[in-house]
Design a protein around this nucleic acid. Structure first.
Lengths: 241, 241
DNA sequence: CCGTATTGAATGAATGTTCAACAAACGCTG
DNA sequence: CAGCGTTTGTTGAACATTCATTCAATACGG
């Protein structure tokens, strides 16, 4: 059916599920520093969220996953709630710094910057089953918990504003007729929706096909900036005078 | 800041949170039929999911919300799990029949059908805080529960196929360059993403602005089929020969 | 040795499920 | 229609389980 997708299920980076064994240079046993232990427990929490979902994630699961004893979590984090907030905070920070660095890495051309932003969203580092499942778990609880809701604005206002600004500039560059704010909302929502589809894991939606779908949309919305070449892959057109 | 949005918070239809009082013609007390009681409990479940989220939804909450005693749920539904599955099933059926009827109501013109499909997604009946929050609660648990995962495919394969078919026809009608399958994925993902944004309730995203964003996208992607008029509202252009 | 990190069992609260008692509707018979 | 037994729906308390939290004892590092 779909063209062979070499990845997305195989070597998915970011897999500290087997984080116990192999002291990879870092100190393990009793010697781990406070911050390292916290990090270790946060990773175990993400594992548990991804594997069992929010409602079935227990302190015991987390402790077991980290290879530690039951009571340890309440020592490093005051409560389960605090642990979960710290975990969400960690993921939100990671997501935020990820797109910011992608933007910094891109050039000055708005089209390049938009492309870079979209591509960043499908980077293996943050876009993989484990993290996606954890995000989804938090989203499900966000509406009824203000603390989560605030942090779940990973695609926060700053992120949204970048989209608006880019759409505004591109509109002038390409003489497009759209309303920048509305279109920016639609575009960022598309990325969120594609994440959602990836998370559900149904159909034959992979990270590749999702990214292609997003690229296809860019080519349709910004025809003066993105073109389709024969390989089916979409790329930015040559710079305009 | 944002233009005054008259709705989305005020008269949101679909609010059986106060479903006890006022026997609106339907039989209440002991006389309610089996099916009516089930329906009543399902509505109470949606209420609880929306108000407290999945993990804090308890049998006692549901029973209290319905104004009945604790043990009643296990009588009509065998277990909590069964109750939740039935609730999800109910919502999935409602969503499915909603877009199907919207499609049936639309004419034969592909552009009309697509517009109708998009508009249906933002209909108050299914797109309101209560239902959205309930959907989100289930999504959060879907990945770790195959039963939920299957039902959560509200936007299932049939729905996706409709998008693909419409995109294919429109592509030929308008001589567009996109790849129908990829674009269809992007479009349906956009709707999902906008739902997600609405759910989070942050920013100034309302049902109106979300729909406008979707419409803006349609106008950008299918310029030969949709145009922007002075009111800012988007409409379908006149039929082509 | 002192302080800190860690353990694992005990505790108590929350919650899903069961069940015996009860009440309303229904059906049967005279 | 009255009387009576049966079925069905409903209740609320009792029960069992799961789980977050506490804490006294312990082990390790400095």
């Amino acid at each position: 059916m779909n063209t062979p997708q070499p990845d997305d299920e195989a070597p998915e980076i970011d897999k500290p599920a087997d984080q116990d064994r192999k002291g990879e240079g870092e100190r393990r046993g009793r010697k781990a520093s406070k911050e390292q232990r916290r990090q270790q427990l946060i990773e175990a929490t993400i594992d548990s969220l991804a594997k069992r979902g929010y409602s079935d994630t227990t302190m015991a699961d987390v402790a077991d996953g980290a290879g530690l004893s039951r009571g340890i979590v309440n020592f490093h984090f005051e409560s389960k709630e605090k642990l979960l907030v710290a975990t969400l905070q960690y993921m939100a920070d990671e997501y935020s710094s990820h797109w910011r660095s992608a933007l910094a890495r891109a050039g000055q051309e708005p089209a390049d910057r938009l492309w870079s932003l979209v591509a960043a969203d499908f980077d293996r580092v943050i876009c993989n089953k484990r993290k996606l499942a954890a995000w989804c778990a938090f989203w499900g609880e966000a509406k009824s918990r203000p603390t989560y809701q605030a942090l779940c604005g990973a695609r926060d206002e700053a992120y949204q504003q970048v989209f608006v600004d880019l759409c505004t500039v591109l509109k002038h560059e390409g003489d497009y007729g759209f309303e920048p704010k509305a279109l920016a909302l639609a575009l960022s929502a598309t990325l969120e929706g594609l994440w959602h589809r990836l998370m559900m894991g149904t159909e034959s939606v992979t990270r590749e096909t999702s990214f292609q779908a997003a690229a296809e949309l860019l080519a349709s919305v910004f025809p003066r900036h993105f073109v389709r070449d024969e390989t089916g892959v979409r790329r930015r057109a040559i710079k305009r005078p």
